[in-house]
Amino acid sequence: MANIRKTITSSIIGGAAAIAAIAALTLPGPATRADAAVVVIPAPEINVPRTGGTQVAVLAGGCFWGMEAVFQHVDGVQSVVSGYAGGSAADANYRDVSAERTGHAEAIRIVYDPTEVSYGHLLRIFFAVAHDPTQVNRQGPDVGPSYRSAIFPQNAQQRQVAQRYIAQLNGTGRFPRTIATRIESGRFYEAEEEHQNFMNRNPRHPYILAHDVEKVRDFRRAFPNDWRATPAS
């Protein structure tokens, strides 16, 4: 099932009938979705200071469509961009990254107002609802290193907060397995235009219906005080 999303995406060119046929044959409906669930976890013990001006977070947690959709609804987030992190500029494109030969991770770049939402709170949402941080090189039906769970700190403070939070969460016993999230370095490269704002532009896409709609609902239920109805661009 590693290439389900790629198959469906390429089928968009063939029209809605092709998409519906693939969905009916290969994708579970929302009622059977088991690749993500809310995990109740504590806030991080340390955090990045809430300074003036915007800050940036880069997070990888499987398919960037769902990650983007969740964080677009976080109050205090100004923009979310899908892209590729951890590899080089030369092959930072969907075809090569999907072939698992570039070293990139599908990731999102979040620009946020730290006076409204902290870096630590973004990590709390990341671990609690945006993806399953215990899965190694996969998320749900998507398999391969490009779907790994990873954090790309933008400075030393973010790195320290991320490292301490992973250790803290592993000590809580809230997850069934050890957290697999990696702390990595590397630049972020923006993905192709068709992958930006994907859920809002393609709300009936079968992959979105099967794997991402419930993630957004879970976020709204678990973090009602952080919910913004109008998604960030």
Rank of each mutant, 00 (worst) to 15 (best):
E194M: 11
E100A: 11
Q72H: 08
G103T: 07
A89S: 12
A16I: 11
L123F: 08
F175A: 03
S11R: 09
N225V: 08
H195E: 02
R187D: 15
T172E: 14
Q78A: 08
M67Q: 00
V81K: 07
V97A: 00
G15A: 10
A162G: 03
V40I: 10
A36E: 02
C63T: 10
P203T: 05
G87C: 07
A36T: 07
I4G: 05
F71H: 03
L169G: 01
A156C: 05
I8L: 15
H211G: 12
P145L: 06
Y119Q: 01
I125Q: 00
S149C: 05
R164S: 14
R33S: 12
F127V: 03
N137G: 01
S82Q: 03
Q72T: 09
Q160D: 04
E214C: 03
F219A: 00
V81E: 09
R204A: 15
N47D: 08
V136L: 10
R204F: 12
G29I: 06
G186P: 13
A156M: 08
T172G: 11
E190R: 01
S233H: 10
A21M: 09
L25Q: 15
A17M: 12
Q72M: 08
D218V: 02
S79C: 05
R148G: 02
N137E: 02
R187H: 11
